[in-house]
Computed example of a mutant assay.
Amino acid sequence: MPLTFTLDPAVTPALRDGVLDLWTDVSNAGGAVGFVAPVSREEIRPDLVRHLAAMAEGRHRLLVGHDEAGAVAATAFFSFNTHRLQRHWVWLYTVMVHPRHQGQGYGRDLMTAAEDAARSFDGIEAIRLGCRGGLGLERFYGSCGYKEVGRVPGAIRCGADDDRDDITMLLPLT
């Protein structure tokens, strides 16, 4: 059953808790979304609050995918640039699909929905995202049309003796 995607859903307690649960579950399953397992909901909550505040200020937008039971199953946050010379592209952050839904094509569906959403934003010509090396994410994003445009070796420290590359990917929309 496909996910149902919504751009800029109403931020209700259920949505907030669903995103927080998703972020926690993805992180604890080894997902590269800003944390290293093990992590608790309370450790993630401040990052979510910052995303929600940026949404309220119009600096971020949220794309959420719900599964057939209505649970939050996938997310991606768009972050708009404030610098006058970079307003023609957006960052895509916190791209997640719940571990129970992985392997069903939902990641690709999420990336297609994100591309479609970005195409609807006035003046946006490209999407950039960063990903953690060592997990094959750049191959996945590459299969979705993104090109690697930058790499900083060892820029992400996941633990003692576990430094990963910080990879920047770009999807032109024009």
Rank of each mutant, 00 (worst) to 15 (best):
R45W: 10
P46T: 09
P46Q: 14
D47G: 15
D47V: 12
L48V: 13
L48M: 15
L48E: 04
L48W: 12
L52A: 13
A54N: 10
R59H: 15
R59K: 15
H60P: 01
R61N: 11
R61C: 04
L63F: 00
L63D: 01
L63I: 01
V64G: 09
D67Q: 09
G70P: 06
A71Y: 04
A71M: 10
V72F: 02
N81T: 05
N81L: 05
T82W: 07
T82A: 12
H83W: 09
Q86I: 00
R87D: 06
H88S: 12
W89T: 00
Y93H: 10
T94S: 11
M96A: 15
M96V: 08
M96I: 06
M96S: 14
P99R: 15
H101I: 03
H101V: 00
Q102Y: 10
Q102R: 15
Q104H: 15
Q104F: 06
G105I: 11
G107L: 04
G107V: 05
D109P: 01
M111K: 14
T112F: 04
A113T: 02
A113K: 06
A113W: 07
A113N: 08
A113P: 07
E115H: 10
D116E: 15
A117F: 03
A117G: 11
S120K: 10
A126Y: 11
R128F: 12
L129T: 09
L129S: 05
C131A: 06
C131E: 03
R132Q: 13
G133M: 12
G133N: 08
G136V: 05
L137S: 05
R139I: 01
G142Q: 02
S143H: 13
S143R: 13
S143N: 08
C144P: 01
C144K: 06
E148W: 02
E148L: 04
V149P: 02
G150E: 00
G150I: 01
V152D: 10
V152M: 06
P153Q: 11
P153H: 07
G154L: 07
I156Q: 04
I156L: 14
I156V: 15
R157Q: 08
C158Y: 13
D161A: 10
D162R: 08
D162T: 01
R164Q: 15
D165A: 12
T168E: 15
T168G: 08
